[in-house]
Design a protein around this nucleic acid. Structure first.
Ligand SMILES: NC(=O)c1ccc[n+]([C@@H]2O[C@H](COP(=O)([O-])OP(=O)(O)OC[C@H]3O[C@@H](n4cnc5c(N)ncnc54)[C@H](O)[C@@H]3O)[C@@H](O)[C@H]2O)c1
Ligand SMILES: NC(=O)c1ccc[n+]([C@@H]2O[C@H](COP(=O)([O-])OP(=O)(O)OC[C@H]3O[C@@H](n4cnc5c(N)ncnc54)[C@H](O)[C@@H]3O)[C@@H](O)[C@H]2O)c1
Lengths: 214, 214
DNA sequence: AGAGCAACGTTAATTGATTCACGTTATTTG
DNA sequence: CAAATAACGTGAATCAATTAACGTTGCTCT
């Protein structure tokens, strides 16, 4: 199977959201136009995206919800749940921990790490917090593949290096720093301050009807 | 002045981060290559971005830090601080409130709102929390132009409508929903779950050296 | 059963962003 | 002082992503 572009993957996940809702509601089929609206793109874009895995829809009903969902998740998810480690149990880290507590069965934050001896050993929001020195051992034992960085910017690179050494394959970085990583590690940055700055900027530029966001 | 593309604006803000650091360190000049590394793009990209506002650099020194910073912020920021309202003082909302407490002088969250009568009237992380019914009044009084949505997904559209009614110009939305808004309102979505899903996805696809994030 | 049509599937055209390539310029060096 | 050089400025080429166009398909209706 040919690799699917990042932007497309993002949309596929978002189609998934609507499809779940549709399925809950008992709908059998869905039109490209509905999917398009839910993700704020054109129906052509949707059809093009779905081409990536040869899904057939019919003109009258659109795409069969059940089958589409199955095919989508066949590509987007593994059988086994993805195991995630979070580094930095501060304000943001705790918010994320509490949110992911049994929200998505296939995505679970199985361990949190911090340098603060006060936090290590305790349980926050249902997650065991370990001292950072335990990372490599636990990552190997639990087969953790994704790391979330919510430490202060000054420690972010160091945390990233530890994650790489521990064998993780992808990093979600909330610190406002550009991490230097081996090219085979997937990196996604979420810079909340930057996003607010952008919003502030465009709030002043009138009439620009741009739509953005990961 | 011609409008600057969104992607470029984002990079400009990030150049700003390095420039601040350079200035602190007492550097007089900076090369496109340095800026490029800090943002993970090519030097050509940097030079092209800076073309947007006719900044002249010299081959030997590069760009004058002081002047570049000034010109950058002339375009990126207003004189007056941007005033921000946050809706939904939950886990995530509180983390953001505490983070923005006098972090950036030009970006301040001046009021927070919630429906929960327990929260309204109290002060969280240095911010006064009001009942949502006060939004329109306070937004007008304080001249708030940006709204941050950290309410549950089910309430997000309703919150967005209130913000628009209150006259804000840009929204930063953390709820996993596609908001329907008038075209003149700038919208930026941050979907943390989606970002984690993407990271999980690409952690399995080997060798893709993609770099992403708002 | 055939006309109408609404939405799909796909190819082609367009748009936009990034990279390439190269001429220009301000030092530094022999 | 001319040659070398290192980085800038920018037009042209490339590349990726989106949009447009259009033939195809499988119902519905008369
Ligand atoms: N909270 C927000 O809304 C917000 C907004 C924008 C950016 N950020 C970024 O997110 C990151 C975290 O923000 P926060 O508000 O949660 O900060 P915080 O100070 O509340 O939490 C940081 C946590 O990381 C721990 N830590 C420090 N060094 C560590 C290390 N080397 N290894 C492991 N743990 C370590 C600290 O003990 C602390 O618990 C920062 O980089 C910040 O810039 C946060
Ligand atoms: N916390 C995270 O890490 C995280 C991760 C991914 C997505 N999100 C999204 O961010 C949003 C907030 O998440 P959270 O974890 O902070 O939730 P939360 O339940 O902790 O907080 C929600 C807050 O919003 C308030 N609220 C509810 N309806 C409201 C309304 N109509 N107007 C104003 N306030 C209202 C509630 O009283 C509560 O204080 C949700 O949409 C969630 O899906 C959060």
């Amino acid at each position: 199977m040919k690799p699917i572009p990042t932007r497309t993957v993002e949309r596929l996940f978002r189609y998934g959201q609507l499809l779940h809702a549709k399925k809950e509601a008992g709908a059998e089929a869905v039109f490209s136009r509905e999917l398009a609206q839910a993700v704020d793109v054109s129906p052509e874009q949707v059809r093009r995206d779905l081409m990536n895995f040869h899904l057939k829809g019919t003109p009258q009903q659109g795409y069969p919800v059940e089958q589409l969902l199955r095919k989508l998740y066949e590509h987007l998810e593994t059988q086994a749940a993805t195991k995630i480690a979070l580094l930095g149990v501060g304000n943001l880290g705790k918010a994320i921990l509490s949110y992911f507590l049994r929200r998505r069965p296939n995505l679970s934050i199985v361990a949190a790490f911090d340098t603060d001896p006060e936090k290590a050993g305790r349980v926050y929001a249902g997650s065991q917090v370990y001292h950072i020195s335990q990372l490599e051992k636990i990552a190997a034992r639990e087969n953790i593949t994704v790391g979330v960085i919510t430490v202060p910017a000054a420690s972010a690179q160091q945390s990233a290096d530890l994650l790489v050494k521990a064998g993780i394959r992808a990093i979600l970085n909330f610190a406002p720093t550009q991490l230097q990583l081996p090219r085979e590690i997937y990196l996604e940055n979420i810079d909340i301050t930057l996003s607010i700055e952008k919003a502030a900027y465009f709030s002043r530029k009138s009439g620009t009807d741009r739509r953005h966001g990961k």
